[in-house]
Design a binder for these strands. Structure first.
Lengths: 192, 192
DNA sequence: TGTACATCAGTGAACGCGCGTTCACTGATGTAC
DNA sequence: TGTACATCAGTGAACGCGCGTTCACTGATGTAC
């Protein structure tokens, strides 16, 4: 082969990673040609790696959840013992997460987008969400897996909604006030 | 004039109303020509009423908040005394609201979309949001306006996030479980 | 009252643009013999 | 070892499509005189 054996999967991974950031930043409004150009490739080659933009979208969401779960897990492990969940909540609701959509939680950035897609797209989303749920559930209260997963749904969907409200507001001080109030609220509700 | 005096504002209102439903249903992905066709008009006439699609978007959001505030206020007034906020929460988190994006809360359907727009778009959003805040704050706990408005931000952004998660999930039973858990959670946190 | 003109909401062709996807081609390297 | 061919990731022109916006035009009715 004219490229090293691991060349193709490596390029594919770069495409997914870049797409993951762009989709979170811009919603569905991502052009294949521009995405490829940023990676010093041309749009024609895209279809050597993916069947369609739709397939890329599904994989990009999975990659995004993985990236965020890793970041939040790190925050938890750096926290003092017993303060893991508090650290996760405060990291999720930080001004930094609010201002960095591209590296942020796909649940916040893309859930409405996914809700508008056909059933196949929603099933792909559920599949991508599952590892995120499992990794975060480790830090959540609850007597059973089912209970912890329901707590994940409540806590993370609530925080995602608050993040979206903060992002839709122009004034930084109002943003900060909302995020801080939400930190207190969710820490009290889930991590006390 | 070749049309009755109130013809133009009446048509304008019909455009905003229809756009409000379509934007909530489909996000930014709304075509002016199709929108006008549904109203038995042609796309050319659109620009007699609006400067741009952007302007329509801003007005449509305001109209959507008004529609939802009216629905939630009605639910509150039909509730037994003392149960107003509980009724609002249970209406917001109902399967019916979940399944009817087009008539649903713009905060859930459009906040991420707005967060991606330039500052002018976010300011327009804040302006459209304000009457919604004021009308809902009437039913919220808090010792001052500021406190009630912060509670609005927490409760409604949280519920919006949960609605978006439920909408992104394919399975109806999982949806219902999440919505029911959220009802209990938010009623306990804000209406007890 | 009658006539000529002005108004303006609505029409539909047209423009320019960007997009997702296809496809014949390139060219560096691997393989067969 | 050397030569002819196969492979296939990547290229870039092209296709077909839908969109936001513009603009010359229509035609019913109001106004000026």
């Amino acid at each position: 082969m004219r490229y090293p054996a691991d060349h193709k999967p490596h390029v594919r991974e770069r495409i997914v990673r870049a797409a993951s950031h762009r989709f979170r930043d811009r919603g569905g409004d991502v052009a294949i040609a521009k995405l490829m150009r940023d990676l010093r490739l041309t749009h024609g080659g895209f279809y050597r790696h993916f069947d369609s933009k739709e397939q890329l979208f599904a994989e990009a969401i999975g990659d995004g959840f993985d990236e965020v779960a890793t970041g939040l897990s790190r925050a938890a492990h750096e926290a003092p013992a017993g303060g893991e969940l508090k650290a996760i909540i405060e990291t999720y609701l930080s001004l930094e997460h609010c201002e960095n959509r591209a590296e942020g939680c796909p649940l916040a950035a893309l859930a409405p987008e996914v809700g508008r897609r056909p059933r196949s797209g929603r099933l792909a989303f559920e599949g991508a969400l599952r590892p995120y749920v499992r990794r975060m559930a480790l830090f959540l209260p609850g007597a059973s897996d089912a209970e912890r997963e329901l707590n994940f749904a409540l806590l993370f969907s609530g925080m995602a909604g608050t993040l979206n409200l903060a992002r839709a507001i122009a004034d930084t001080e109002t943003r900060r006030a909302i995020l801080d109030a939400a930190k207190r609220f969710y820490v009290k509700a889930f991590a006390s």
